[in-house]
């Protein structure tokens, strides 16, 4: 899977925290504070997940660029005398 393909769902995930949905029904009472905190922490973790993917993309792009320029260098030197 391309890293870019994960970026969009992760950002959507973080933003979707603000969207209304069906009520959560469980036999266990999640507790108001616990529930609210989970949403907040989930948003933070979701965003950091998205940022992590963004950062990885940036690093891998930089690496590709760097390795490409290094790969091109010897051929440039070979081409030089001509």
């Amino acid at each position: 899977m391309k890293p870019q393909s994960l970026l969009v769902p992760a950002l959507v995930a973080a933003i979707a925290l603000l969207v209304m949905t069906d009520p959560a029904m469980a036999y266990l009472d999640p507790g108001s504070g616990s529930y609210f905190f989970q949403l907040l922490l989930g948003a933070v973790l979701g965003c950091s997940f998205a940022l992590k993917i963004y950062w990885r993309n940036l690093v891998s792009f930089g690496r590709r660029l760097f390795s490409k320029s290094r790969a091109n260098r010897p051929s440039e030197q070979q081409d030089g005398p001509e």
């Binding site: 995930a13 979707a16 969207v19 209304m20 949905t21 959560a24 504070g33 616990s34 948003a43």
Partner: peptide, 26 residues
């Protein structure tokens, strides 16, 4: 802190059951 702060429901109660946590956030 959140559990104590919202132990009586209050602000959280109104938002409870209305917001979402997507799968990758969970």
């Amino acid at each position: 802190y959140f559990v104590k702060k919202f132990s009586s429901g209050g602000a959280a109660a109104s938002s409870k059951n209305t917001r979402t946590l997507p799968r990758n956030a969970l």
